[in-house]
């Protein structure tokens, strides 16, 4: 198939960017979207141009690196998949495809389609962990009883890969789906109880400091999330925060 691509090109964070049009031909419908981008980049390199910079790593939907806003949607038109899992059969011959970086004040563009998502790392460092005794008498996690329902909910939250699609798609640039998934995965497990209250307070504080917007329950994040993280997590984070604010001590 032959396609017209309108790709966001930006040399660096400080420079102005713009959409640049490219033509790619003989694209197989079995290619992934990233493989199609590889074809474009080979073409650019052969003609002596600067290839398009984009994030990618595992190319099997678990690392959370790929991050393109394709035709107005995070990770493209399909649901529950990352850009690397999107195949060209989702497009038609002759299509024009807009490819833009994540747009958010907290995710500045590094180059072209790459954005700096280290704000997520800093939110995670503010409380997204548990304290485990590693003195040699570490308690086997499998020996701690966890209700099945809690384990399932915690696991569902833990499937978040931190790609940032929620922030990119939210008109408010809010990171609450991500932060609530991290808060939830620990709040539901016995291991997460020690830091439960300070975790939610610290992570929300850091989230605000990083310049993410406020959730207004629009729900676009849940729809566009490649891991189908539920809005229920945001409601849980709201409860956790409310309880921790009312009674900060354990």
């Amino acid at each position: 198939m032959n396609l017209t691509l309108k790709v966001w090109r930006q040399k660096s964070t400080s420079e102005q960017g713009k959409l640049v049009e490219y033509k790619v031909s003989e694209i197989s419908e079995d290619m992934s979207f990233l493989e199609m981008m590889d074809v474009l980049n080979y073409k650019l390199i052969e003609s002596g141009d600067d290839p398009v910079a984009f994030d990618h790593d595992c190319r099997e939907g678990i690392c959370g690196m790929c991050s393109m806003f394709i035709n107005g949607e995070a990770h493209g038109p399909n649901r529950g998949v990352t850009t690397c899992q999107l195949h060209m059969r989702s497009f038609k011959d002759g299509d024009t495809i807009y490819i833009e970086p994540w747009r958010s004040a907290a995710f500045p563009v590094i180059k072209d389609l790459m954005v700096d998502r280290s704000a997520f790392d800093r939110v995670q460092q503010a409380g997204g962990f548990i304290s485990v005794n590693t003195s040699g008498r570490t308690l086997d996690a499998n020996a701690i009883p966890v209700p099945k329902e809690d384990a399932d909910k915690s696991f569902d939250a833990a499937t978040c890969i931190g790609c940032g699609a929620c922030v990119a798609t939210c008109p408010n640039g809010s990171a609450m789906l991500f932060v609530s998934a991290k808060v939830s995965q620990y709040a539901l497990l016995p291991q997460g109880q020690v830091e439960r209250k300070e975790r939610v307070l610290n992570m929300v504080k850091k989230m605000d400091e990083e310049g993410f917007g406020n959730c207004s329950n629009i729900g676009a994040c849940e729809v566009q999330c490649p891991k189908n993280i539920s809005l229920d997590n945001i409601a849980r984070m709201n409860r956790e925060y409310l309880m921790a604010s009312i009674k900060p001590e354990n």
């Binding site: 959409l19 107005g72 004040a105 798609t169 008109p171 408010n172 640039g173 917007g213 629009i218 729900g219």
Partner: peptide
């Protein structure tokens, strides 16, 4: 605050795919 958190608009907007206009 929310406008500030998303200063640059997308060239291709398709918000209707994932949320209602009134929300």
């Amino acid at each position: 605050q929310n406008r500030k958190a998303r200063p640059v608009k997308y060239a291709y907007e398709k918000s209707s795919a994932s949320s209602t206009w009134y929300s």
